[in-house]
Every structure is written in structure tokens, then in C-alpha cells.
Design a protein around this nucleic acid. Structure first.
Lengths: 243, 243
DNA sequence: TACTCTTTTGGTCAAAATGACAATAAGCTT
DNA sequence: AAGCTTATTGTCATTTTGACCAAAAGAGTA
């Protein structure tokens, strides 16, 4: 049968194989951005196989036959790092012929923005090493994962100016200064505080919590939360977020 | 061998099979937008198999083992429609478990914007029917192709406001009114002529051809071309296209 | 309590951008 | 030459932006 030839070719590799029940030739990889003390991090893992440490990599793996792509990404992220409850968005599919040394595999990259404090990396004997790595100190990663990261970072910088996604990097309640620090960290620039505040508030996307920051040795700032409902409403009226 | 089980599962379908030399479980589909008389079109094809007409669909197909994703999309587009020389950008990968009635296939969707006059649909005995279909009159398409189209259309509307991609829908030399009509067609709104002109010219992305429009029964407008070089330069300085 | 320190928050002001619209210029047709 | 249509330029009030100043609020300390 002709198909069998193709199938053999598909699995003709000397590296990690897709386990039983998973689709050959496709994988998912997760690019998880986090914010910690005002600097941007990315979540990396390192497999230990037969006592040998593999290079750092994005957490990724194979897709089950009966599983949607995003579900697979979510499962694998949790499996490798213990991170749960993040909303994954598709970034791009990377499919160069030679991106892996074994066989032909296209990988669907997903990304998410989280606040690292809400995402503890829960170690476990079955799990690889995991770390939040500062975006400026990323080592050589496995396969084409540096390329995926570079693409994702550019994407993030563009996207944060045109869509209100930055809020995902912060805890639910945040101060305007925390939000501003986030923009400065991602865009790598400095912004004027009063002007930032004015522009952000005028969009009417922030709802005051009527609560103050605590534990600071100076005037406490007001806390806000992102008003997703207001955003939906405005969007449907043709509003377009800009920063 | 365990892998062979997976491989069989991968090809256990009763529908179109990936031919020998192609990757199972992944395909590409092309979403080609065109502009004709100020209205937005999309390129559709209809296969004839054993004299039976299949439903209209986006032009797509299987990827060769030794072929990059975009190359596959390009080859297949040409194969089915005769359209050549368009720049395809990746849109998104669609991979729901049940998106096809046979087997599990994720499809990487590519899109392009072209001026229809530059893209004649070259018929050929081996080719399916092909047409430029008005965006308002799209019929029920095969599989999840309507979903792909809807996603692509939303994507286009957002993107055209934030990146200078609209120029691809026009011939190399165009008038400001043609450009404005394009924006109005895609965004489905009306714009003020002098203001549109002012804003567009201020961005310094248009280079005058020092030529006039011909064949019109009134004052001929000046022709412009998109200055990609200027755009690159500005972009690298942090400039961000907005409309 | 009074004073200091730090950060939030509320302003001002000139410059630039926008939206609405009037007016002029250019080129074809009759 | 007159009329028609569209291109192009210009005006003006309003809004938004960028730079910067200053008052208000707490927390800690003398």
C-alpha cells in the first residue's frame, strides 16, 4: 500500500518519537511570557533523559488524536511545569523542512502572558527542570526555539500597542504605575506618568476597584481592574485600542 | 511496532488521501483576497471528481515532505488556479479534532492580498473551477472553510488599520482615491477625501510617480506608489502605521 | 504633632492631529 | 467658452499629545 510508505517516511527519525495515540508530524510548543519585578521573562524547561541534560527549550510535545490543538498545548504546559489556568493563543506554525534533526515535524506555537506570581513552577520527579528566564539572558535553545522566541517577542511588542493584552501579565487588581512599568518593560522605553495615566483612563477600559494599594511606604495608589465587558462593547462599536 | 499503529490511525480515513510523498495529518489552505471595482473578493475553487462537482472551497492541498509550508501553499495555489507571484503570509492553523469527516488533519491557512487584474485565473483541463467571489456572496464552503474565511476577514480588517498591507490589493501605481476606496471597501465605512489624503501623505510612505491617471473624463489624479524602503526605515525607528 | 520623604494625582500650556467643510484648480465634454 | 466632474488646497474649531509643574496623601521619624 502506497500510504504505508509515506507513513514510514514520516516516522523515519532517530530522535524522540510521538507516543502511541499521538499525531506524527505535528507538535505544539508554548511560549509563556511572565512579568517579575518589572522585567520580562519566558518560561523554559530542560529535560533530563537517562541522566543526561538536554538543552533548554520551550515546553512542548505531541498532540493526541482526539485532542484539539489548544487543549494539547494546555495539557503539555501543565505536564511539564505545573502551570495551569492560562489562556493560550496561537502564535504561528513553524514548519521548515529541516527544523528538527529527525523526521519532518511542523509545530504549532502557542503563547500566553501571565503574572509569574500566579504561576508557580511546581516541581515533580516526573518533570523536567523549569525556570522563568529573563528575556535578556536566554541561552541557546533546542531546535528552532530561539527563532520561535524572537518571532513571539516581536509579535508581543506589536500586539501590546494595538490590543489590550498587557493586563494578562498583571494580577487582577493593579495600579496604573504597575501597568506603565509593564509597557516600559515590553516596549523598552520610558513613558511620562501623568500622560500615560490620562491616555489609559480616557479609554474607559479600566474600572476602579475603589481600593488602595497596601504595604507601601508612601501614598497608596488606587487599584484598577481591566473591564473586559466594556472592551467588548466598545470593540463592537468599531473602537480600536491604540497605545 | 507501536509506531505503525499510530501511523495506521493517521491514515484511517475514507476521504481524499495525501498522495505519496506528502505529509499525512497536515495540509495548507489559501485565502486570497482580491479587489475588483471597489469590492472585496475571495478566490474559491470547485473540484470535479468523477464528473461530480464538489462544494466550493479554498484552494488547498497536501505538503510534500521536502517542501516548506509556504512553498507548498504557493505551489498548490498555482496548481489549482494558475495564480502566481503573490506573497503568502501565514494566517493561522486550524486543527479541530473533527474539522474533516475523514481522519485528523490540521491545516495551515495562508492569506494574500492581490489586485485581481494582476491575477488572471488560468483555466486548464486538469484544474478545478475557480472564481473571484464577492465577499458578500460567499456560499457554504467545504469543511470548515467558512470559519477560516471569517477569521481571515476579521484579521484583515484589523490588520489593514495597523499595517500598510492594503497596497498589495492595488496595482503598483495607484491614485489616492483608489486607496481610499480600498479602505472603505474593507472597513465598510466612508471617509472624508481631503482628510484621508492629508493623513496618508503625512506618513511619508507614498512616493509620487509624477504621472497622471489616464482614460478618465475629468481631471486626472496623480499616481503614487508605496515606498517600502521608507517604511522599513521608519519602522526600525519605532514608527507604527496607524489608520 | 510637625516635618520629611516619596509617590499619586490633578493641572497648565503650547504644539500637533483630527474632523467638518469651503474653495479653487484642472481637465474632459459639449 | 460653458458646464461638469473630480483633484487638490486651504480654513477653522475641536481634540489629542507631549512636556512639565504643583498640590495632595500617606508613612515614617524626630
Amino acid at each position: 500500500m502506497a500510504e504505508l510508505d509515506n507513513l514510514k517516511k514520516a516516522s523515519a527519525h532517530a530522535g524522540p518519537l510521538p507516543p502511541k495515540g499521538s499525531i506524527p508530524n505535528i507538535s505544539v510548543d508554548n511560549l509563556i511570557f511572565g512579568l517579575e519585578n518589572g522585567s520580562l521573562k519566558v518560561l523554559l524547561i530542560r529535560h533530563n533523559i537517562d541522566g543526561k541534560r538536554k538543552p533548554w527549550a520551550l515546553p512542548g510535545g505531541w498532540i493526541h488524536f482526539d485532542e484539539d490543538l489548544r487543549d494539547a498545548a494546555k495539557r503539555i504546559l501543565h505536564l511539564h511545569t505545573g502551570v495551569e489556568g492560562v489562556y493560550l493563543e496561537q502564535l504561528k506554525t513553524f514548519g521548515k523542512v529541516d527544523r528538527l534533526p529527525f523526521g519532518r515535524v511542523a509545530t504549532v506555537a502557542y503563547y500566553a502572558l501571565v503574572s509569574t506570581e500566579k504561576c508557580p513552577l511546581i516541581a515533580n520527579d516526573d518533570r523536567p527542570d523549569a525556570m522563568w528566564c529573563d528575556i535578556h539572558d536566554v541561552p541557546n535553545l533546542a531546535y528552532d526555539h530561539n527563532e520561535i522566541l524572537d518571532f513571539g517577542l516581536k509579535f508581543l511588542r506589536h500586539k501590546i500597542r494595538h490590543e489590550p493584552i498587557g493586563f494578562n501579565l498583571l494580577p487582577e487588581k493593579f495600579t496604573l504605575l504597575e501597568l506603565q512599568d509593564l509597557y516600559e518593560a515590553i516596549l523598552d522605553c520610558t513613558l511620562d506618568k501623568p500622560n500615560f495615566r490620562r491616555k489609559m483612563l480616557k479609554m474607559k477600559l479600566l474600572e476602579s476597584c475603589n481600593e488602595k494599594q497596601t504595604g507601601v511606604a508612601h501614598r497608596a495608589a488606587n487599584l484598577y481592574r481591566f473591564d473586559a465587558e466594556a472592551f467588548e462593547k466598545l470593540s463592537s462599536q468599531g473602537f480600536s485600542f491604540e497605545f
